[in-house]
Every structure is written in C-alpha cells, then in structure tokens.
Amino acid sequence: MLELRDLHKRFGDVVALDGCSFSVEPGMLVGFLGPNGAGKTTAMRTIFDLVRPDRGEVTWNGAPIDYETRLGFGYMPEERGLYPRMRIRQQVTYFAALHGMGRADAEAAATRWLTDLGLGDRLESKLEVLSHGNQQRVQLATAMTHDPELLVLDEPFAGLDPIGVEAMAGILSERAAAGTVVVFSSHQLDLVEDLCERVVIIDGGSVVLEGTVSGLRSGSPRRYIDASVASDAEWWLPLPGVVVVAADGEHVRLAVDRNVDVGAAFRLAETAGTVRHFSFEPPNLSEVFREAVSPG
C-alpha cells in the first residue's frame, strides 16, 4: 500500500503541497486529478525522492521508502526524457537492468514490451528518430518492463492519439488487474471516469475529494436532469434551486438538489409538452471535479 501522509512543500513563496495525504491499495487504478498547479507533479515526485518534502512522509507497506524499495517502482515523469541517441531496445533493457533485472531477462522483457507496444520493427532505432507518440511508448516501456509493484504516471495520455489513448488505457487496467498499484494524473476526466475505480482530487496542495468514482458521484449534493420536451415553456422553473447548465433547442440540462422530487419534475415536463427524453443522474466526474475545485 502506498501512503502519502501530511506532505508539505514550499518552493520559495509558492506552496506546492499543503498537507497532502492519501493512500492507494494494491490492485487499484487511481486517477490523480487537480487543476494546473495543484501539486500533482510535486506529490508524485516525492514518491521517487525527486522532491524532498519539508514535512510529512511517503510510505510503502507502512515503511519509509529507500532506494532499494524504489527499484521495484516504475515512473513516467511529466517531462518525458530518455537518452536521444540510444537504441530503444538497449535503452529499455538498460533501465530494466538498473531496476534489478538480469541482463538476459531484461532484454527479453524489453523486446516483448516494445513489440506489444507496436515497436517490434523499430527495436534497433535510435530514440530521436521516432515520432513523438512512439517515443512516449518507449517511455512507458521504460517504466514497466521490470514489472513494478507501483506504477506512477504523470499525464500518460497527454499527446496521444485516440488509438494510443485506448492502448494506454488497456495496459493500465491490465497492470492494475495483475495486482500492481497504478496511480496516474490526467486532465481527461471522461477517460478517468471510465478507467478508474478511485480518484483523488487535489487543489491548492491538499486533497479536496477522494473516493470511488461512483461514490463521489452519488455523494454529490447535486443531481442533473437531462430532458427533451416539445415546449417553449420554461417548465422547470418551479423546481427548488434549479440551475440551467445547458440548453440547446428542446434539450436542457438542469442542476438540481439531490433531494428533489423526481416524480414532480417529470410531471412538470409532461404537463408542458411531449417528453422525448428524461433522465435523472448524479453529476459526471467533470462536474464533481468542478464542484470540488472551483472556489466557493
């Protein structure tokens, strides 16, 4: 289990982490969310001792993390970086060996991973001649070839095309299913909603919301009504605390209190005109996110 406990870090006048705490159980795929500058990258870097917190600690299975433990982790930093002039199989083999794999095992695993990632015919290419997307795949292989217990990826989906996103998502779920602790940050909230069991939302250097995706959605004090009604009337006005989130012709999306009388709402719509569509749902993850991080 990975645990970040009460992390504080300041860079000059900037407070990057302000009491950030959360924990991740094995076999779990966790999305780490937050607006730009919220402290996601700093928090991730503390796990790898790339930033030393002013206060607080990071533990793995209850013990502080030393470098030998860290050899069993995998990390894909936000600022991607590998040796530009090194051949990719050699490069992935090198990092796997640094993480403690034997030379032959490391090379076999590097070949397998790179082939799985669609780079089977580029094994002897230098990194610098590959496209951006392919370099990203090599970076992922570097983080995973040694079969880490903990995999931390900072914005793994940034810059990938839809096929690449799908492949990356598949690999991350597969690793989590195999028992790896997987933590990744992302701004693509729809993707996170589909992919993750748990999310941690950080803002201003501390965790503002944490839990399962369904729990966070249903725990929200708001609900959303999507309705298409053949009427020009603003039939929703009698609903208490209603806000129009979006309107497009007949279709409206309404934010309401979660205790609203759904039956009464439906009857209002029905009275106004023919109801072609009516749904009552908790907020999606993007809405949960905005509620959590927007001021007030």
Partner: peptide, 16 residues
C-alpha cells in the same frame, strides 16, 4: 545532455 534531455528525472527516480 542528461539534464537537457530530462532523462535524469527517470534515472534519479530509480537510483541515487
């Protein structure tokens, strides 16, 4: 070169 290519982040995330 290691610093400019940022590979140092990956290396130092692994070894000291």
């Amino acid at each position: 070169e290691e610093k400019a290519s940022r590979v140092v982040e990956v290396v130092l995330g692994t070894v000291r």
